[in-house]
């Protein structure tokens, strides 16, 4: 394709990205560095601040249960409520990623079963990539940037909750060193979604053709946008290998939680995605 077409594709995907994803990297980095006129985020660093900030996370849907009124019981409930709210937000984010996928030229013309497969296998990878701009080495923004939750607090939760986020921090700190901006991210997300090697795809060729065009667009974009960053295109693509391992580990952890946490019930949309995934 001509470079003008590739640039138009990049512009189109960037516009979709801005339309469907409420918290951009530019905004997240402004919040994290204090360079915004908005209020600084509320910091959650322990159980007390989690309870104080709960109303901002909108995680009070689960009623307090009568049989657990001890301090330990209340803390377990606060943790569970927090992870339920994370699930609700994840389900919303899946919906946003779906709209973004549908905006990729040619996606909605693919076999409908293949559209389902691409989303099923791609969406958690996309969500992990989208988490990276919200994170720094010390913590992560949540609730659309209203809250900063510290990495140490997440590590201090009981098992297996404490194991959920640490691998994402390790990945994100390295991924953020590539310094992609929102327009680069939009193309990279489309590349991830259009992976022709997902299990069970019926018609791989049109998916690979679409991905090839987006890859050309990403390569051109990175060369233009980051002229001094050597081999950036290759470095970005290498992250896709790390992502698959992260998703496999994440799904195993969720399965473990389903078995060990009596109060744990997985959001139906997330259940659909994770059932028979890897």
């Amino acid at each position: 394709p001509e470079s003008a077409d590739l640039r138009a594709l990049a512009r189109h995907l960037y516009e979709s990205y801005l339309k469907y994803f409420p918290l951009t990297k530019a905004k997240a980095r402004a919040i994290l560095s204090g360079k915004t006129s908005d209020n600084a985020p509320f910091v959650i660093h322990d159980m007390k601040s989690l309870m104080e900030g709960e109303h901002m996370i909108n995680c009070r849907q689960m009623p307090m249960q009568e049989h657990r009124r001890s301090d330990v019981g209340i803390m377990r409930e606060v943790e569970l409520r927090f992870f339920h709210s994370c699930q609700s937000r994840s389900a919303e984010a899946v919906s946003e990623v779906t709209e973004f996928a549908k905006s990729i030229p040619g996606f909605v013309n693919l076999d409908l079963n293949d559209q389902v497969t691409l989303l099923k296998y791609g969406v958690i990878e996309v969500l992990i990539i989208m988490m990276a701009p919200l994170m720094n080495k010390d913590g992560t923004l949540i609730s659309y940037g209203q809250i900063f939750m510290t990495r140490e607090f997440l590590k201090s939760l009981r098992k297996p909750f404490c194991e959920m986020m640490e691998p994402k921090f390790e990945f994100s700190v390295k991924f953020n060193m590539l310094e992609l901006d929102d327009s680069d991210m939009a193309l990279f997300l489309a590349v991830i979604i259009l992976s022709g090697d997902r299990p069970g795809l019926l018609n791989v060729k049109p998916i690979e053709d679409l991905q090839e065009t987006v890859l050309h667009s990403l390569e051109l974009q990175l060369k233009t946008n980051h002229p001094d960053s050597l081999q950036l295109f290759a470095k970005v693509l290498q992250k896709m290998t790390d992502l698959r391992q992260l998703v496999t580990d994440h799904v195993q952890l969720i399965q473990l939680m389903k078995e060990t946490e009596l109060d744990w019930c997985l959001h139906p949309l997330l259940q659909e995605i994770m059932r028979d995934l890897y």
Binding site: E92, S95, L119, G200, L269
Partner: peptide, 21 residues
Amino acid sequence: LKEKHKILHRLLQNSSSPVDL
């Protein structure tokens, strides 16, 4: 496959903005 993924299928078929879940 789409039978086992009813919500994903609905999200894909929905023609407007993100679905309220």
